[in-house]
Simulated scan of single mutants.
Amino acid sequence: MSEDADGARRRETAAQAVDPCVTSSMVVAAFWEEASGAGIDPQAGYEAVLDQVQAVREGALAGPEAMLAGQAIALNAIFAEMARRGQAALGRPGIAAERYLRLAIRAQAQCRATLRALSDMANRPTKEVEAPRPITRIERIIVQPRGHDGPSGMRTGEAGPADDWAARNAEREDYGEGLDGGAARGLCADDAGAPGVGAFDRTPYG
């Protein structure tokens, strides 16, 4: 076998190992054979699981609803049986009664959670509306100018053009408040009329 064919076979095996439809069908087949004594063809089991997944993708949730309803019924049966065994073990030595009753309570709680999930699925909204993304404080500072009127005549709360940040930064530079060193440039400029605290006196000593 060539290296290309061997690599393709390894990739195919890895893809099957991480495919949820493949792994689910294997688990179903193993438990079904143990319970009924009849085996399931791997390809047929895979296609059955894939059909269920495709139906859910298309919005048909009859299968999952039936699954949850069946699980709730089974859990209720487990609760009743464990409660019966716990009651029968009451008054006897050991902790069998406590263990049975604990299992009954756990089955009851899981049954209630399953019914809640079934109710949520039945009452799901017809169309999910995506909530708007909250505006961060930094975005609010950048987009909304301070005061009633912005530097370009905008009212507070109105989004400015894409280059509005650069325009406001340029105006701050005129007062020595720019973010790119405007204040430092005003302090160190040779021009006596430069903004800031004025130019340095560079008269030589002596």
Rank of each mutant, 00 (worst) to 15 (best):
D19N: 15
G94F: 04
G94V: 05
G91T: 00
A5D: 11
M82W: 04
G37I: 13
Y100N: 08
G160F: 03
A8R: 07
L103W: 04
F200N: 11
G45W: 00
Q71N: 11
V56G: 02
A83E: 08
R168K: 10
A189N: 15
A122I: 02
A5P: 00
I135H: 07
V49Y: 00
A159F: 06
L115G: 10
P132G: 01
D149V: 13
V53N: 07
M1F: 08
E177C: 05
A30E: 13
E177R: 15
A122M: 02
M67L: 11
I135R: 14
A199E: 05
S152E: 09
E130K: 15
M1T: 09
L187K: 10
A35V: 05
D149L: 13
A74I: 09
R185E: 09
M154K: 08
P204W: 06
L118F: 05
W32V: 01
L101D: 04
A15M: 06
A109Q: 15
S152M: 12
G45M: 00
A194F: 02
P145H: 07
D164H: 09
S36K: 06
P134V: 02
R172N: 09
R92N: 07
P93M: 06
V49K: 01
G150I: 01
P93I: 06
E130T: 15
A83F: 09
I135C: 06
Q110W: 03
V27P: 01
T13S: 10
G37K: 13
E58C: 03
S36Y: 04
E47V: 09
L50Q: 13
G157F: 01
A14T: 15
P64W: 01
G193C: 04
A74Y: 05
A122V: 03
A66K: 01
F200S: 12
A113V: 03
